[in-house]
Design a binder for these strands. Structure first.
Lengths: 256, 256
DNA sequence: CTCCTCATAATGTCCGGACATTCAAGGTAC
DNA sequence: GTACCTTGAATGTCCGGACATTATGAGGAG
């Protein structure tokens, strides 16, 4: 623990906040998170200051607090949905009731200088590579290609990707979860080879999505997905308050 | 002003907060927003309670507060950027330095049962209609069609839309600002007529964006935009904290 | 063993005060 | 008229205390 510096320019409560965040990440509070009074006594500050420091942590859901209850830290095992346009697309398909499965076309380790460069790695770095054609019901839906540093993704080489999600396997076998990333979405006309794989006509357009994903500040995946555009769409809500949010599934309910 | 009820189940600070929000919306604080001490004395509560009530309002940007400065309410005239995929697309184009202008193909009032239905209006409701081809530099960029209830948008009929933004005109002439909405983005192959307007080849795909926008709970616009897909892309960042956010312009700077 | 009661601990709410820091405006010296 | 200084007002930070409300577990009555 770092002692608080009462003469520093940064306020006490912020010092406390960053210190608590660090201790949280280190797993120090895995068993029990101390209460406000205990923290105040430990750091030598008033309860008011402790509450100010905890405010952000509680708002972010890192720490759970309720009246009368023992304070707890958020369950780390909670499955964070891999966000983004792809997730939104496939969740919508799932919501329609169609079963999804994948046809694995490649699953190996190879070197690719172009992709390695995009991941910020040396050109000769071995990369885990997975190429799948995703189906919804009987129809092919998307052509999905992923590259990840082999160092991280090696445990996935003997996984079965016909039904399971890459991110679920990644979290389980490698202990890595995507934290943030960025993607670029283009509207394209699939090439002949791609049309064959996706069983679509020459007049069908598609979404081409490039994504780079990070975990813990380091690039973890580079992905290129080509989605048939004739049956699938991105939908989103936006507002001044909530910003822009992709809608994962239809919210309209037939009930009542 | 509503007096606070100290025996109510809802906390004092929340009562204060909702009351202040109501007074804000009524325009009561247009000239001057009272300080914390003044509010405390006025409502008969401590400064601590006032600060708790103001916390949300300040976080939302409704009220601006800085040390030493007179508290102010957020400038109502501030132009809220019309969010969404379209704004993101066009802002990116603008960031490249290309000048934008539009070719107005239609600007009138007509009835359209299909569109009216999507807006939740009677089929015979007169609708303001604007159809433009947007250019970036010399090249056509998008075909943009907008329908709005004539009751709201009538003041826009004699506006010049070759250079100005629809939303800017709407805010200025009709006093209406888009508050929220939803959109659906498809990847399509433009039809022959559209290809002619957009000067693109038969192998060029495009984004087809349908949007419905609301202001004050009532539908205000229905819009269909077809964007050339060969030169433009949607880019977005996502993270567990901030969610999914379209990136309006390139953040990479060549400086330093 | 079961059910109820009660003590305990934790957060939520609210009050009071004090000092530091910063911005804006007005007044003064030149 | 301009530059500087002083003063006022406002928020930021931090402390102390008090009581209310709620969940949990221990202990006793039946």
């Amino acid at each position: 623990m770092t002692a608080l510096d009462r003469d520093a320019a940064t306020p006490l409560w912020r010092q406390l906040q960053t210190d608590l965040e660090a201790r949280l990440k280190s797993g120090e509070f895995a068993e029990r998170f101390p209460g406000e009074l205990a923290l105040g006594e430990h750091y030598g500050v008033s309860r008011h200051t402790v509450r100010q420091a905890l405010r952000q942590l509680r708002a972010d859901g890192l720490v759970l607090a309720e009246r009368g209850r023992q304070p707890r830290i958020a369950p780390a095992s909670e499955i964070h949905q891999p966000m983004g346009a792809l997730y939104s697309l496939f969740a919508r398909v799932e919501a329609t009731g169609l079963g999804q499965h994948s046809l694995v076309r490649a699953l190996d380790v190879r070197a690719d200088a172009v992709v390695a460069d995009r991941l910020g790695l040396e050109g000769s770095t071995p990369l885990f590579h997975l190429e799948r054609v995703r189906h919804a019901g009987d129809q092919p839906l998307a052509l999905d290609r992923v590259w990840m540093p082999a160092e991280i993704a090696a445990p996935l080489l003997n996984a079965d990707f016909t039904h399971t999600s890459l991110y679920a396997e990644l979290a389980e076998r490698a202990g890595v979860r995507l934290e943030h990333g960025s993607e670029e979405i283009h509207a394209v006309l699939p090439a002949a080879a791609e049309r064959t794989l996706l069983h679509c006509s020459p007049t069908t357009a598609g979404f081409s999505i490039h994504r780079i994903g990070y975990s813990g500040g380091a690039p973890v995946e580079w992905r290129h997905t080509l989605v048939r555009g004739d049956r699938f769409a991105l939908t989103a809500d936006f507002s001044a308050q909530a910003g822009y949010r992709l809608r994962p599934a239809q919210t309209r309910t037939a009930a009542s």
